Simulated assay, not measured.
Amino acid sequence: MEGEEKFCATSLESLIDFSVERLGLNVRVLSTDAGKKQEYTVSAKATMIGDHKAAVCHKMRYPYAVHYCHVIADTEVDEVPLVGADGTKVKAVTVCHLNTSAWSPDHMAFQVLKIKPGPAVCHFLDSNTLIWVPKKD
């Protein structure tokens, strides 16, 4: 996507450096709690953690630690409390891409949602993904 910055981090130091260089020193890192596979229900109101810009780092399948990181503008990051069918409580992280007009019309999100580029698209992040957001003052 236009304006998206991409990076492969092969160490914890490079992962941190990438995120701090793009978002500043005053950042917060989040991830979805690891929970067992079961049905979950949203149990309370979501809390907005970050808006406008975030650095997302996805763990890659590799024999050593590698994360595919990218910075995405025009996003909103929320923390969503969930409760599992067995009563387990977890916090999940969601990302909303607020403007999808520049995305390819063939993007999987549009196929699944049966929409065209333009409106916001939101999704949950898995527990192997780290998301960095500027801290709110």
Results as ranks from 00 to 15, higher is better:
residue 94 T to F: 08
residue 16 I to Q: 09
residue 38 Q to C: 13
residue 76 E to H: 08
residue 17 D to M: 14
residue 81 P to E: 09
residue 33 D to L: 12
residue 85 A to L: 12
residue 66 V to G: 08
residue 65 A to E: 08
residue 72 I to H: 05
residue 16 I to N: 08
residue 75 T to F: 07
residue 15 L to S: 04
residue 45 K to G: 04
residue 93 V to N: 08
residue 109 A to N: 02
residue 83 V to D: 03
residue 68 Y to V: 06
residue 57 C to P: 07
residue 74 D to L: 11
residue 63 P to M: 13
residue 106 D to I: 00
residue 84 G to Y: 06
residue 80 V to N: 10
residue 78 D to P: 04
residue 28 R to D: 06
residue 39 E to L: 14
residue 26 N to A: 09
residue 27 V to H: 03
residue 22 R to T: 04
residue 87 G to W: 06
residue 29 V to G: 04
residue 16 I to Y: 05
residue 39 E to N: 15
residue 48 M to A: 13
residue 71 V to G: 01
residue 56 V to R: 10
residue 78 D to C: 11
residue 82 L to G: 05
residue 85 A to H: 07
residue 94 T to E: 09
residue 68 Y to P: 00
residue 106 D to K: 00
residue 115 I to E: 00
residue 56 V to L: 13
residue 63 P to V: 13
residue 107 H to G: 01
residue 52 H to Y: 14
residue 113 L to A: 04
residue 87 G to D: 09
residue 18 F to K: 05
residue 118 G to L: 05
residue 22 R to P: 01
residue 41 T to S: 12
residue 107 H to T: 03
residue 112 V to D: 00
residue 28 R to M: 11
residue 117 P to L: 01
residue 62 Y to I: 14
residue 38 Q to M: 12
residue 90 V to K: 14
residue 25 L to N: 12
residue 110 F to Q: 01
residue 98 L to K: 11
residue 115 I to Q: 02
residue 16 I to R: 09
residue 47 T to Y: 06
residue 13 E to H: 08
residue 66 V to A: 11
residue 103 W to A: 00
residue 29 V to Q: 07
residue 58 H to G: 03
residue 80 V to L: 06
residue 112 V to I: 07
residue 37 K to F: 09
residue 24 G to L: 09
residue 51 D to F: 08
residue 59 K to H: 06
residue 90 V to M: 11
residue 85 A to C: 11
residue 99 N to E: 10
residue 102 A to F: 02
residue 96 C to M: 04
residue 72 I to R: 12
residue 82 L to Q: 13
residue 62 Y to R: 14
residue 32 T to R: 05
residue 65 A to I: 11
residue 83 V to N: 03
residue 44 A to V: 07
residue 93 V to C: 11
residue 82 L to C: 12
